[in-house]
C-alpha cells in the first residue's frame, strides 16, 4: 500500500521537476517559432504567429552549404573522437586500476594535472604546434589527439579507473586460475563488465566534441567542413542584426542527435556487472 502511494508521489514529483527543469528549453523552443521582434520584447509566452519557417530559413541561411553539411561533418568528426577516446582511455584506465608499475602515483597526478591548466592559455601554443604538424584546416587536430587520450583524457581515464576498481577482483583471480594473461583478463573480464562506463565515456566524448567550439573554430577554416557548433555561430555578428528565430531553431535541431543517442543508449548505463563466471 505505502509502496503504491510512494510510487505515485514519486511520479508526480518527477513530472513537476521535469517541467521546471525543461522550462528554459521550452522557452528556447517557443523562441524558435517566434518572430524576431517578439523574442526579447517580453510579455507573451506563446508566439502570436507560429513561424515554423524559421527552421527552413535557418537550415538554408547560407548560400553554399546547408545545415545538412554541418551535421554530416559533425557526425564524421564526432565518430572518430568517440572511437579514439573509448579505445585509448579504456586501456589506460585498466592499467591505472589493476596493474602495478613504477611512477604510478606520479603519472596519476600528471593525469589529473592535465585537466588543471586552463584551456585558454594552451590554445595558442597548441595551435602553433599543430600547424607545424600541418594539421590546420583538417579534422586531424581535433580527432588524432583523442586516439592518444588527449581529448578530456584525464577525465575519461580517471572515470575508467574508478569504475574498474569497483569490479570485484575475484573475477580477475578466477581468470588467472584459468590461465589468462593480462590482456585476456582485460578483454574477457574487464571489458564486458565495463559497458556502463564505456557508454558514459562515449556519451561524454560525443556530447563534448558536439558542443566544442573554440578548438573547432581554430582548426577549421573551410566553411564546407564546418560543424554544427560553428554553423550556429555563423548567425552572430558583433553588431549586425541576429535572426534569433533561425538561431534557436538550429540550436534545437542540434540537440536532437545527442538526446537520441542518450535515449537509445541508456540501457547500457544500467547494465550491471555480471557477477558470475567468464563470458566468451
Amino acid at each position: 500500500m505505502t509502496n503504491q502511494r510512494h510510487r505515485i508521489l514519486k511520479f508526480i514529483f518527477l513530472i513537476a521537476l521535469t517541467l521546471i527543469m525543461l522550462y528554459p528549453v521550452i522557452w528556447l523552443f517557443l523562441g524558435s517559432v517566434k518572430a524576431n521582434n517578439e523574442i526579447f520584447a517580453g510579455g507573451r509566452i506563446l508566439p502570436s504567429v507560429w513561424k515554423w519557417e524559421n527552421y527552413k530559413a535557418g537550415w538554408y541561411a547560407l548560400p553554399r552549404f546547408t545545415f545538412g553539411t554541418f551535421f554530416m561533418n559533425t557526425f564524421k568528426l564526432v565518430f572518430f573522437v568517440v572511437l579514439g577516446s573509448i579505445v585509448s582511455t579504456t586501456l589506460a584506465g585498466y592499467a591505472f586500476a589493476r596493474l602495478d608499475f613504477p611512477f604510478k602515483n606520479l603519472l596519476f597526478t600528471v593525469l589529473l594535472a592535465t585537466l588543471m591548466l586552463p584551456e585558454q592559455v594552451l590554445l595558442v601554443p597548441r595551435y602553433v604546434l599543430f600547424s607545424k604538424l600541418g594539421w590546420v584546416n583538417s579534422y586531424k587536430a581535433l580527432t588524432i589527439p583523442a586516439f592518444f587520450g588527449q581529448f578530456s583524457g584525464g577525465f575519461f581515464i580517471y572515470l575508467m579507473t574508478q569504475f574498474i576498481r569497483g569490479i570485484p577482483r575475484e573475477l580477475d583471480e578466477a581468470a588467472v586460475v584459468d590461465g589468462c594473461g593480462t590482456f585476456r583478463i582485460f578483454w574477457h573480464v574487464i571489458l564486458p563488465n565495463c559497458k556502463p562506463v564505456v557508454f558514459s565515456v562515449g556519451l561524454f566524448a560525443f556530447m563534448w566534441s558536439w558542443n566544442d567550439f573554440l578548438n573547432q573554430l581554430l582548426y577549421i577554416n573551410d566553411v564546407g567542413r564546418f560543424t554544427v557548433s560553428l554553423g550556429l555561430r555563423l548567425f552572430l555578428d558583433s553588431a549586425a542584426a541576429v535572426s534569433w528565430g533561425s538561431l534557436f531553431a538550429m540550436s534545437i535541431l542540434t540537440l536532437i542527435p545527442v538526446i537520441f543517442v542518450f535515449y537509445v543508449g541508456q540501457e547500457f548505463l544500467v547494465d550491471g556487472i555480471a557477477t558470475t563466471g567468464l563470458k566468451g
Binding site: Y127, L230, F235
Partner: peptide
C-alpha cells in the same frame, strides 16, 4: 578566392593564433 568566414565569437583568438603560426589569411 577561398572565403573563410565565421561568426564574431573567437575570431580574434583565431587571428592571433594564425598570425603567430604564420598562416594568416
Amino acid at each position: 578566392i577561398i572565403p573563410e568566414y565565421a561568426g564574431f565569437e573567437g575570431y580574434q583568438n583565431k587571428l592571433l593564433s594564425q598570425v603567430l603560426a604564420g598562416n594568416a589569411p
